[in-house]
Nucleic acid binder design. Structure first.
Length: 111
DNA sequence: ACCATGACGTTTC
DNA sequence: CGAAACGCCATGG
């Protein structure tokens, strides 16, 4: 049975759930989410799941998810480059050169 | 089942 | 934190 509740398939759903829990004005990293999922080494899968989350039915603050350095690595996957930065700055997050400033302060861990 | 890809991370230089 | 290499795990062909 695939409903092991902690295996493939639910991976996407788990990522969506955590992303939806990100507070306003805060950001998190792929590694942090992966760790919360129990698969610390699958940080890449987190990004993969976010890319799959482009479905219009899923409204998640994906822009609040950046890489470990605070770089907006996913901005290229939006309608246009800068969209992600725009959304982040709108929440009070300062972004400079595609990088989140004071990343440690706005960082939120899904623990 | 094997190989290639990917919005990453850690280690090493 | 510059760049490069390895690891990592899930998805698709």
């Amino acid at each position: 049975m695939k409903n092991d509740n902690h295996r493939v398939g639910n991976f996407y759903q788990r990522v969506y759930d955590i992303v939806a829990l990100i507070p306003h004005g805060k950001v998190t990293t792929y590694g942090a989410i992966a760790r919360a999922l129990g698969t610390a080494g699958s940080a890449r899968m987190v990004g993969w799941a976010l890319m799959a989350a482009h479905s219009p039915d899923i409204n998640l603050p994906i822009y609040r998810v950046v890489n470990r350095r605070g770089l907006l690595t996913g901005m290229h996957h939006y309608d246009y480059p800068g969209k992600m930065q725009e959304l982040l700055e709108r929440e009070g997050i300062r972004v400079r050169e595609n990088q989140v400033q004071e990343f440690e302060k706005v960082f939120w861990e899904p623990s």
